[in-house]
């Protein structure tokens, strides 16, 4: 994974989201969403929202939906552990929330602290009614984004694009 690779897939994610009408980009900074947020900061219609904890982004996106705006929550996998309480609002109220989760602790991870939540991401999100769209390779990227946007759009279900460490690589320590 080079910087230009990351620039390319970040632009792919951002462009598809803008084309689908996603304008509110809530986030906790991570390697996996840094370029996406830079693009949001530079875009006329996009609004980036820096959070203090990932669960805030769940509620921010639900609030956006209340007035017909599409939002996304961009976070590292460790942040998924902060979300279930507010996902009860999303699951109970059938709010279609969109997420981009950049993985740690799933493939080649060298930081043992990342494994507990990295390995729990699927179970946590599925338990709270969020459908998963995994990206293991460049070939997966466009169809996964397309599917997640459809699912959380007309599909009316919450969806998470999961950028795995097979795709984004493992951080060296």
């Amino acid at each position: 994974m080079t910087d230009s690779d990351r620039d390319e897939w970040s632009a792919q994610i951002f462009d598809q989201m803008i084309d689908a009408g996603v304008t509110l980009f809530s986030y906790i900074p991570d390697f996996g969403n840094a370029k996406i947020i830079e693009l949001a900061e530079a875009h006329n219609e996009a609004q980036p929202v820096l959070l203090t904890t990932e669960e805030e982004g769940v509620a921010v996106c639900a609030g956006a939906d209340l007035v017909g705006t599409r939002g996304v929550l961009c976070m590292q996998s460790s942040g998924v552990g902060n979300c279930p309480n507010f996902l009860s609002l999303v699951k109970g109220g059938n709010f279609p929330i969109l997420m981009v989760v950049s993985m740690r602790g799933d493939y080649g991870e060298q930081n043992p602290w990342q494994y507990p939540l990295g390995q729990a991401v699927d179970s946590l999100l599925e338990a709270m009614g969020v459908l998963l769209f995994k990206v293991d390779s460049q070939e997966d990227l466009e169809p996964a984004i397309t599917a997640a946007l459809a699912t959380s759009g007309k599909g009316g279900k919450s969806a998470a694009i999961i950028l795995t460490q097979r795709f984004i690589g493992a951080k060296a320590f």
């Binding site: 509110l24 509620a59 609030g63 209340l66 705006t69 309480n85 009860s88 609002l89 109970g92």
Partner: peptide, 25 residues
């Protein structure tokens, strides 16, 4: 009005999402 009966803590963040998405209200 949207009232909650759970998801304790979510009100301010949900309101922020509404406010940023409905700037004319």
């Amino acid at each position: 009005l949207f009232t909650m009966a759970g998801a304790m803590g979510a009100a301010v963040s949900m309101g922020l999402g509404v406010a940023m998405s409905a700037p004319d209200r």
